[in-house]
């Protein structure tokens, strides 16, 4: 099978690498198809593989007594599994699973760690991504503490939209309530509110983004901080 080329990969982190850093990773990258809800990294088990999303994205959740709650999202801007390995652990207490199906470039943790040890510039770029992911997680805490559910939904939809091809997202209210850390009925009320304003169209098992600008206005400063940090730290904007 032919190896992915830096000119044609869609993962923004891979694109941001120097050609020599990309060459370090390239022989170890394997394109894998990913299905909705497929586990990528299981909690408290050694990370065997990391994933650069090409199409689709991963949700990071924590398990509480009331069920799972989402704490972060990683799509084609990132690398799933990088944080524990880079920060000196071999595992994470958090669950990582596929939320938007598609395909990802997988790399074994062994090959990954070998490449990071060889290249200071690769190590630094990945630390910067870790910083962005930290800012995103902190932002989730801020938004959950400070904003009503309609605003949290708007932010979450924008984050998904950033990582999607097209405007349609497949999801149930049951799943959405897990993502937002609310009762399912509250998710239903928030969906109805946004649909009433024609910001989105909701059909059974599907939500379509109709007015992104309006969602950004509603999300206010709940959205945009980690995205700006990514542009600054990774893409040099």
């Amino acid at each position: 099978m032919s190896q992915p080329q830096q000119s044609t990969v869609r993962n923004r982190l891979l694109k941001a690498l120097t050609p020599s850093d990309f060459a370090l990773l390239q022989p170890h990258l394997e394109l894998v198809a990913t299905e909705l809800r497929q586990p990528l990294i299981k909690p408290n088990e050694p990370v065997k593989q990391l994933y650069f999303p090409e199409v689709g994205f991963s949700s990071i959740t924590t398990q509480g007594s009331g069920g799972k709650v989402e704490i972060g999202i990683i799509g084609r801007e990132g690398l799933v599994g990088v944080i524990p390995l880079l920060l000196g652990s071999d595992r994470t207490p958090h669950d990582h699973f596929v939320q938007g199906p598609g395909e990802m470039l997988a790399i074994s943790s062994q090959a990954f760690c070998g490449a990071v040890n060889e290249s200071a510039s690769l190590h630094k770029l990945l630390l910067r991504f870790t910083q962005v992911q930290y800012v995103q997680t902190a932002q989730t805490a801020f938004v959950n503490a400070s904003y009503q559910i309609e605003v949290r939904l708007a932010r979450w939809l924008l984050m998904c939209h950033d990582r999607l091809d097209g405007d349609e997202l497949r999801l149930t209210h049951e799943f959405l309530s897990m993502m937002l850390g609310t009762q399912r009925t509250s998710a239903t009320l928030a969906v109805q509110a946004l649909e009433g304003h024609r910001f989105i169209k909701a059909q059974r098992g599907r939500v379509t983004i109709l007015d992104r600008e309006a969602l950004e206005n509603l999300a206010d400063d709940g959205y945009g901080l980690p995205e700006a940090e990514y542009a600054r730290l990774i893409e040099g904007a």
């Binding site: 009503q148 309609e150 605003v151 609310t182 399912r184 009925t185 509250s186 009320l189 109805q192 509110a193």
Partner: peptide
């Protein structure tokens, strides 16, 4: 049960 949880924790602009 759901109503109690919503009253305790969930805040919406609409409600």
């Amino acid at each position: 049960t759901v109503a109690r949880a919503m009253i305790a924790r969930d805040r919406l602009v609409t409600i």
